[in-house]
Write a protein that binds this DNA or RNA. Structure first.
Length: 938
RNA sequence: GGGCCUAUAGCUCAGUUGGUUAGAGCGCACCCCUGAUAAGGGUGAGGUGACUGGUUCGACUCCAGUUAGGCCCA
């Protein structure tokens, strides 16, 4: 007879196979329909705010793995805080201005660009940026990210732009912002400044020369054995045309230099480069006179090789010993490192080259001559003065203009700067850094070093797509006009018409009527430059946190990749400390880079780039989210398909665990069946609920500590070991074969019901789609809200009672013993004596009181806990030859095949099977149930 | 070249202040079950702790260096 119909077999329409890609779309639709984000806002209205301020990604291209990691981490935190009862709004943002977008548009337009006005070009850029903002929004939503996507913050919005202009003028008026000069990449053919991304490196032939600078003066006590009158420092350069702008020579402070006698001359070169210099200059015979370190030569003075001026000897770590002489010709107006050295030694940033690449009047000798033509003349001049030691052609990689393909130069131009030392700004930033919680803690050291070491922040860019630097100059004296009314007019203009208005308006329309500058000038012009985009994003805390009523300043948390120590963390900090006197964040959390399976960075050229949307399509967003949670994101994280397989396995295990619980609760009505008094629950169910409660406590802590990896492992362990292997396996007998409405079965269901409801909420911040899918499948009587995200974090009320009733050590011991029994049974199985463990009968020999107390306490249930036919306890010493050894020293075990018959209904091997003549294939536990069942059928 | 970071089983991670035989889950192998079934259970095999040297009675843990990799600079 088939007794299956008399069992309580699981039933659920929650599918085992997730088919995430499709089912996630249904969840998205559901969230959209009920307006979930707004509902969460309403639910937590009035609660304490928790502000995670989103750093704006650049509105270009599709999102990459790093963006996916970043937004998912933020989303997990925001969802957890919301469930925990904080008012945690999330306003996503985008960085919309900047060179890459402008570059794309300029490329698209080609020559047509000359027919368009600045405002028209800007309109194209705006459309381009907005298009990508929309793409990003779709992609973030697809990842399951919750936020105010209907009203994000955009750096190109009118509100935001006017806040940028306002902040700029605030800082200008407080003296933080000033003009200065700085060398930048410059194309002398296009007459324009270039960004690093706008140069192409190509092969170029230069003339490399070795030049001698006569030493005039050395620091006291530096050189003792070398006569000064013949002493020269040798430099090597591939840009002879920069020699007129030379103001110094840099040595490496740590290098050892030598003075070398060659015929009647004495030269200084780095010791390690002496051989190569001697070879290059073809010295047949030379003699080392003395050694000296670079730092000992600091502040020596040399004579320029062909101009009437002295130049300074400096030291810098940028000086290398791979080529040249170890002594570096330094023209602060024509190179980045030269510029830095010039600033350090207070040299002028001298750049005597005009925008079309000819010398200005300060270089009398070559005035009006192109720098390319001057190269030969300068070499000739050096030869005449006897300071040219060697000349050669050198083919090397050199920057060229991306548009006209001509070689570019470094040339100094007037730029706007934030003065790092003004009003103690640097020190105040360093102090503000100490007030912030940095995670990981080394972040504090990292950003402090950067803040400590950086030079003035150049905030001007010679581009079109950005927020203009709203300054008016007097054409007579070339000075910026500082006037209160002017500033107000500018701010009003921008607030009303946006920054595009700046490009249309005449400067006289902004100035008071008949304005005369202090110098007497009456003609004015507008600044053409725009602001660095880092300045724009750096004011987001002012433009967003301070301006939106649902947010607040400062933020509780900034969470970005480690590259933002240099970027947004810092730009935001400088501006906040300057204008607000403190950091714009209480805490900063950073994550690492997403690398490929081999730990290499993802690059298009390496062909190892993985697109997160592809992963979503193939595996589902929840798999990606689970992957995020499994990683220790404080370091770089690897992404590979083996790992994704592991993650999918874990996902299936978690999903099936839920499926089992749901399948066994099909006939459970909480109002009627839930056992409210924990004391009435069966011991095993009490244990399971205590485990659940303790897990809840730990997981809550881990969420609060942003330690999602631990959550992943805990959840996986709980599902695989605590529930599936331990609890459910024992429970099946009770759930399937006991009378439907028996107290024992309802006890098990009560536990499952509570575990299910707790677990579904605590996985929701990570497995958002699956949690919502489960929630949707729960009977209405199980839940008090339409979405899992509108519930509250589970309570731990029952914990106290349970922790008194349940002795965890007892259970750990029981499970340990079960493991030992399994090992013993494994031998019988290997010998083909039994198959299922239910066929085994166990004898436990133990003389130890504590163990016996424990075993006797649970004696009624031991066979069900151990999944065996029968357990016999004995205090006697077992016969030595018949005993399986065990890891528990005080206990010996003996297992053998049972002699009992298998009950056809519950599959247990009980002594009662076969004793009833009417039901010869059933045990005495099943008989009344079958009888009742058949009565009901009649 | 500089600042900061990383290196523990095939994968993801644990490892209290240096102290027995370095743990877990997954995967893998073998077995069982067939009433969670493209599921479930059991057992087992996997680690020169990147490498080298030092401190120590004792080092995965502390120190130095090397190698490989990452971010940001230069």
């Amino acid at each position: 007879m088939d007794y299956k119909s008399t069992l309580n077999i699981t039933h659920t329409d929650f599918p085992m196979k997730a088919n995430l890609f499709q089912s996630e779309l249904d969840r998205l639709k559901f969230w959209d329909e009920i307006g979930l984000y707004q509902k969460i806002r309403e639910k937590n209205k009035g609660k304490v705010k928790y502000i995670l301020h989103d750093g704006p990604p650049f509105a270009n291209g599709d999102i990459h793995m790093g963006t996916a990691l970043n937004k998912t981490l933020k989303d997990i935190i925001v969802k957890f805080m919301s469930l925990k009862g904080w008012d945690a709004p999330f306003v996503p943002g985008w960085d919309c201005h900047g060179m890459p977008i402008e570059h794309k548009i300029v490329e698209q337009l080609g020559d047509h660009i000359h027919q368009l006005s600045k405002v028209e070009i800007r309109q194209r850029c705006r459309e381009y940026a907005l298009n990508y903002v929309n793409r990003h929004i779709q992609q973030f939503k697809r990842l399951g990210v919750f936020g105010n996507f209907d009203n994000p913050y955009l750096t190109l919005s009118l509100d935001y732009e006017s806040k940028i202009v306002e902040a700029f003028h605030d800082m200008l008026n407080q003296g933080f912002i000033t003009r200065g000069v700085k060398p930048i990449l410059w194309c002398t053919v296009c007459h324009s400044a270039l960004a690093e991304a706008e140069v192409e490196y190509a092969s170029h032939e230069s003339t490399a020369i070795t030049v001698a600078f006569q030493v005039k003066k050395v620091p006291p006590n530096s050189l003792k054995k070398t006569p000064l009158e013949f002493l020269k420092i040798l430099i090597w350069t591939t840009t002879p045309w920069t020699l007129p702008a030379n103001l110094g020579i840099c040595l490496n402070p740590k290098f050892v230099y030598v003075t070398v006698k060659v015929n009647s001359n004495i030269y200084i070169v780095a010791k390690s480069l002496l051989n190569s210099v001697a070879q290059t200059c073809q010295w047949s015979d030379y003699q080392i006179l003395e050694e000296i370190t670079g730092s000992e030569m600091e502040y020596a003075v040399c004579r320029h090789p062909f101009l009437e001026k002295d130049v300074l000897v400096m030291v810098g770590d940028h000086v290398t010993a791979d080529t040249g002489t170890g002594c570096v010709h330094t023209a602060p107006g024509h190179g980045r490192e030269d510029f830095e050295a010039g600033l350090k030694y207070h040299l002028p940033i001298y750049s005597p080259v005009t925008e079309n690449g000819v010398y200005d009047s300060t270089v009398e000798k070559y005035h009006g001559l192109s720098i390319w033509e001057a190269n030969e003349k300068i070499i000739e001049q050096l030869r005449l003065t006897g300071n040219l030691l060697f000349k050669d052609k050198l083919v090397h990689s050199y920057p060229h203009c991306w548009r006209c393909k001509n070689p570019v130069i470094f040339r100094s131009t007037t730029q706007w700067f934030i003065q790092i030392e003004k009003h103690e700004l640097r020190n105040r930033c360093l102090e503000a850094i100490r007030q912030v919680q940095w995670h990981p803690t080394w972040g504090q050291e990292r950003i402090s070093n950067m803040v400590q070491g950086r030079s003035d922040w150049c905030i001007s860019r010679q581009r079109t797509w950005g927020v203009p630097i709203t300054i008016i100059y007097c054409q007579t004296c070339e000075q910026p006009v500082i006037d209160k009314q002017l500033t107000e007019n500018i701010l009003t203009l921008i607030k009303n018409r946006g920054v595009d208005a700046w490009f249309d308006i005449e400067s006289k329309d902004l100035l008071p009527l008949n304005y005369v500058h202090t110098c007497g000038g009456t003609q004015f012009k507008k600044e053409n430059d725009i602001l660095d985009v880092w300045f724009e994003s750096g004011i987001s805390h002012l433009a967003v946190l301070k301006m939106r009523s649902e947010l607040q300043w400062p933020a509780d948390l900034y969470l970005e990749g480690g590259d933002q120590y240099r970027g947004w963390f810092q730009s935001s900090l400088w501006i906040a400390v300057a204008l607000m006197g403190q950091a714009p964040y209480h805490s900063v959390l950073t994550h690492g880079w997403v690398l490929d399976a081999h730990g290499r960075a993802m690059h298009k050229s390496a062909g190892n780039v993985i697109n997160p949307m592809e992963i979503v399509e193939k595996f589902g967003a929840d798999i990606l989210r689970l992957w995020v949670s499994a990683q220790d994101y404080t370091e770089d994280v690897s992404f590979g398909y083996e790992m994704l397989e592991r993650i999918s396995e874990a996902y299936r295990r978690i999903r099936n665990t839920f499926r089992f619980m749901m399948g066994n609760l099909y006939d459970f009505e909480p109002v009627h069946h839930e056992i409210k008094d924990e004391n009435q629950l069966e011991a095993l169910d009490q244990w399971a609920l205590l485990e659940m409660g303790q897990l809840l406590l730990r997981i809550t802590e881990y969420y609060e500590a942003w330690n999602f990896t631990k959550i992943f492992h805990e959840i996986e362990f709980f599902c695989a070991v605590q529930l599936s292997a331990r609890y459910f396996d024992i429970l099946k007998d009770r759930l399937y074969t006991f009378e439907k409405d028996s107290l024992s079965r309802r006890s098990a269901q009560t536990a499952l019901y509570r575990i299910l409801k707790t677990l579904v909420i605590i996985i929701a911040p990570i497995l958002s789609f699956t949690a919502e899918e489960i929630w949707g499948k729960l009977p209405e009587s199980f839940k008090m809200a339409p979405s899992v995200f509108l519930t509250n974090w589970p309570s731990t009320d029952s914990m106290e009672l349970l922790s008194h009733v349940v002795v965890k050590d007892e259970w750990e011991n029981l499970f340990l013993l079960k493991e030992e029994i399994s090992k013993s049974i494994e031998h019988l199985r290997k010998d083909k004596i039994i198959g299922s463990s239910l066929q085994a009968e166990v004898f436990i020999f133990c003389k130890e009181d504590q163990w016996n107390q424990l075993l006797e306490k649970h004696f009624q249930n031991l066979s069900s806990y151990f999944l065996v036919s029968q357990v016999t306890l004995s205090r006697e010493v077992p016969p030595a030859d018949d005993v399986k050894s065990t890891l528990i020293p005080k206990i010996s075990l003996r297992v053998r095949k049972t002699e009992h018959q298998k009950c056809a209904r519950c599959w247990n091997y009980f002594s009662s099977v076969g004793t009833n003549l009417d039901f010869s294939d059933l045990c005495d536990r099943c008989i009344p149930i079958v009888q009742k069942h058949s009565r009901l059928e009649k």
